[in-house]
Amino acid sequence: MSDGKEAIIEVKDFTAKYGDVVIIDDISFEVLRGEIFVILGGSGCGKSTLLKHMIGLYKPARGNIIIKGEDITKAEGRDRIDLLKQIGVAYQLGALFGSMTVLENVMLPLEEYTDLSRDARHLIGRMKLELVGLDGSEEKMPSELSGGMIKRAALARAMALDPEVLFLDEPSAGLDPITSAELDQLIIQLSRSLGVTFVVVTHELNSIYTIADRVIMLDKSTKNIIAAGNPEYLRDHSTIPVVQKFFRRQTDAQLGAQNQR
């Protein structure tokens, strides 16, 4: 929808630590408005850590994370709330509130932050659920939903306030291929129709090829970004062994054999 060139999130000289252990060492990147941006890497490389810093849950050891011109690492009080209202987060396990129905979960942010009437909140909540294909499940409790439905409901809740940026943590982890593919299509559809910017953490290769406009790959040993760009291009042209192995699902032995041939 938009020009797609302007950066909506800027991460500058970012370092993350748990105690004295450095998880991510001095990285910088930008997320452009309207794109689907994927953060990937092997287990334990700091993908989720990076995401949690980007949504302001943790304070970085060093560096800035600027969302729409506002530094989320420095924002406090009112400013922080205003900034958080412009982003939506769908957690890995859904994090739906178990004591509320699905519809109440989606309506909660509307109830807290807007002056919409009850009927209006209801209708908007139902529209969001319909958008993610959960119509008819409004009155169900989260415990009655399947894994795929929980992820959809979490996505609907993240979209409740029509944020410009949606963060998704492992959206397709633990889902069957069909549900996972449907979710990918949903993400693409939302991105194209609503112009929402997506920041997705995942290591599901199929998802990455389907949805990603651009990826960055984090590496555990260098604690840095090891590759960035279009996933197909990286698969076919990267010369870095770790990147090759990741995109081709190979072990060291397989890669060695292939390179000798």
Binding site: R126, M127, E130, D135, G136, E138, E139, K140, S193, L194
Partner: peptide, 18 residues
């Protein structure tokens, strides 16, 4: 486009099983 994205038929129906 945004208006057409939502399925009016579904929304006009009452909510799921109460």
């Amino acid at each position: 486009k945004l208006y057409k994205l939502f399925n009016f038929g579904l929304l006009s129906k009452p909510e799921g099983p109460g």
